[in-house]
Amino acid sequence: MNLSIDASFMEQSITDFLNNKFPGKVLGDYTYRGQFSLYVTADALYEIALALKEEAALSFDFLVDICSVDHLGKAWESEGRYEIVYTLLSLEHTYRFMLRVKIADHTVAPQSLCDIWHSANWLEREVWDMMGIEFKKHPNLTKIVTDDDLEGHPLRKDFGLVYEEPQFSHNHDEVLITPDNPNH
């Protein structure tokens, strides 16, 4: 399969299609190691995803993954603390690319894609659970993997790893684990 020709053709047609249909909503593109992604605005994401799915010439019918990145404390944090990455796949064209959204705060998240793809439901719930991004109009944004008692969203950079120091003979008194005092 000659991927290089297909890929550049697809990149061009996606960019053209979105620029024509949603002017001003595509903020830029990003290609790294041959993988193409587009930055779009959060408010238009739902419409863009729907259009990409329904446009017959592109037919991105498969939502592979939704993933979030926290850029807290990085030099580029001012561009938006959280980044949400939607990986889309077109089975017909065997082409995969990523839609990326950068948001400054977890409350200004894009609209949920549950209506478009069934798989988005759990993936978005997981993003909310782990990173605390509140997708709009999600039917059931509740905890999915973490413990019910856990407060906070573990994958945020300001949530520590909660490393528990192992007890050895050299630090026996400092890290004392007894049945009465199981923590310390």
Binding site: D65, C67, E83, T87, N121, L123, E126
Partner: peptide, 27 residues
């Protein structure tokens, strides 16, 4: 799938695993 975001240091900024079982289970 493995989605890895690097910030230029020797530790990854984010490692995301695209879990097939998780998505299959949602069906």
């Amino acid at each position: 799938g493995f989605f890895i975001d690097s910030d230029g240091t020797n530790i990854p900024n984010r490692v995301r695993v695209r879990p097939p079982s998780f998505v299959n289970l949602s069906a």
